[in-house]
Design a protein around this nucleic acid. Structure first.
Lengths: 354, 354
DNA sequence: ATCGGAGAGGTTAGCGTTAACAACGCAATA
DNA sequence: TATTGCGTTGTTAACGCTAACCTCTCCGAT
């Protein structure tokens, strides 16, 4: 009340309040204490209807926006959930985000996204940055992290949900599918349909652990059937659809006997499909095709590509549910493990027999 | 230094520090004042190399993560940029985000995203929420906002960049293209190529102002040429590619004379293209097609769809540059206006003559 | 010997909010 | 009438950090 700053000002009637508004301003405007204003604005404690309205009117008139920074510091409660994903341009992660938002929208929590570009060092940076805001929980893609990252996550003292993948040792909770198993099942389905000369097309994957695990599961299951991957082709960067075409062209020219192509994602698979149809190749008679993810886009293709739905949206929802539950106290234990089952969608490109 | 809290503890050597670490812990561990630790951790002020190392070692050993909440409150500097966009599943906005991140990565600033689902009320909520974190700047899609939103943005006292669109009254800075103009130019190009019976296919657009403006510019320019839109078809929700097919089927069956279809985005345009090719319709001879946005996906289609590049990535970059410049003081004035020029890409579906 | 000044580090006082508790007024009860 | 107790409002002290100022030491110039 004492240190009212004197600011030299023009004669304008309407002085735009250059100093940002605080509770104090609202309290002065409404004639009650800051504490009461705080209570009104958070609907907490008993405040008489009269005071409540007086305060709300003043706050609205001034255009007061509470300062969450100060609030968070005082209450040591931050309603943010850190979400750390490798990429935004993949269509997969926006869908996960959608699932997360759907659930968090019904809670006081808010997601904040960080992108790592599949780089462990970047992940470490982003994680450090996010943890320094003391979020109420962390949702992070994958189970592979640097030692420093794992240490940070463990030390953060908040719920951590690793998503997408369940093949590995989680730090706390996990929600995802088994990519190895997804690869295995696809391999079996392919062989069962009578294909024998199988090619694999995917990303250059040293850092895409999930693609790698799918490939491992795939080759492993093929091996059990006495089949080996006949040829492979990898790409990085560029329009996935166009790359799918190019790679398909390359691999088919190189290995003419191929009768099945397994793509590590739907986008390149779609490119391959378009390529084959254009070339008049009989799909799935002469060659079968399959992708991975179950993206919506497939519904619009000339022929439905075989794929395996990775349940991205549901993964997001489950992860958010765990964080929300633990944060509001309705879940007390940690370490939950939710394995979703990827569903094989044979579409029209995987069914030589029957 | 006086009020060291006594915590009853077991005899364990390694006490997992359940109370979150503070500067104090680091200062005690390294034998210097908190202030010095703070200086080291922010590379500010003069600290001897010896002390610096001592402090860094202690911080790392403890696994200390600074509390930005407290830091922000004390310094009243928050290195966050609020980015408010209508949707994440559009492929357009992830690209804008990429542009923003590219630029902000070289600054201390960090983007934080909020999604409005094209709903003004939701925009208001999200904006309020974000402003309560006192960000250093706001990047927000579109020029149409509720009165309350505009008031908040003006009162926030930070740089505001409205992006995507320049047709309207900005609050502060704008970066985007003129969608009216984009619509007009496409109309002219279509007519110039000799098409006369033109259909429009798009989203139900009461809330998609940019699509609406394109449509307005489109019809306006057609009118000048004495041409009227012959038929229209709108959709909402679902897989855009599949919707493009369906709508194309519907409109072509309803209006057999149509010789050009203008789609409000590339995705439905691609669906339409695939449909026409499948039906054996001569494109662009019998029917011409065009979309909007210039998405990468088009590169992989059987035929390159005519489109107009909306320069999303560059929009993100420019917007981020303005925020960054104003926030580090290298730009002092406000109200900048950057109008990018959308480039017509005729592809292979818009060129009946020549 | 004296002084100026740079380098290194410490002290103090907030930043704007909320938790915890204290205090007040007034009606119902003993 | 005194007492209890509830509903309502105010007071005080953090929360963890940084800006601003202050002190001390040491060294070279005078």
């Amino acid at each position: 009340m004492t240190d009212k700053k004197i600011i030299p000002m023009s004669d304008d009637i309407e002085i735009p309040p250059r100093r940002p508004l605080t509770l104090r301003d609202v309290s002065e405007a409404s004639g009650v204490s800051e504490m009461t204003v705080s209570r009104v604005l958070r609907n907490r404690g008993d405040v008489s209807a009269t005071t409540r309205e007086k305060v709300l009117k003043a706050a609205k008139a001034l255009g007061y926006v509470p300062n969450k920074i100060a609030g968070a510091l005082a209450s040591s409660r931050v309603n943010l959930v850190a979400v750390i994903i490798p990429s935004m341009s993949n269509m997969v992660f926006p869908e996960v985000m959608t699932g997360i938002s759907e659930v968090l929208d019904d809670t006081p929590l808010q997601p904040v996204v960080g992108v790592t570009n599949y780089l462990p060092e970047k992940e470490e940076e982003v994680l450090f940055e996010m943890l320094s805001w003391r979020p109420s929980g962390v949702i992070i893609a994958g189970l592979e992290h640097s030692d420093a990252s794992r240490a940070m996550l463990r030390a953060a003292g908040v719920p951590v949900v690793e998503i997408m993948d369940v093949d590995g040792e989680p730090i706390d909770a996990v929600v995802g599918i088994s990519h190895r198993r997804a690869g295995r099942e696809m391999a079996r389905a392919i062989v069962k349909s009578g294909y024998q000369n199988i090619g694999f097309l995917g990303t250059k994957m040293p850092l895409d652990h999930r693609a790698r695990k799918r490939f491992e599961g795939f080759t492993e299951a093929l091996a059990k059937e006495g089949v080996e991957v006949m040829d492979q082709e990898f790409y990085s960067g560029g329009s996935a659809l166009a790359k799918g075409r190019e790679m398909t062209d390359t691999i088919l020219k190189r290995s003419e006997d191929l009768d099945f192509l397994y793509y590590s994602n739907d986008m390149i698979g779609a490119g391959g499909l378009l390529y084959c149809l254009e070339k008049g190749i009989d799909v799935p008679g002469r060659i079968g095709l399959a992708g991975f993810n179950g993206v919506e886009l497939l519904d619009g293709l000339p022929r439905k590509l075989a794929t395996m739905d990775s349940g991205r949206r549901e993964i997001g929802r489950e992860a958010a549910r765990i964080i929300a539950g633990r944060s509001d106290g309705s879940i007390t234990e940690g370490g939950q493990r939710v394995e979703l089952t990827p569903k094989l969608e044979p579409g029209m490109t995987l069914r030589r027999y029957r």
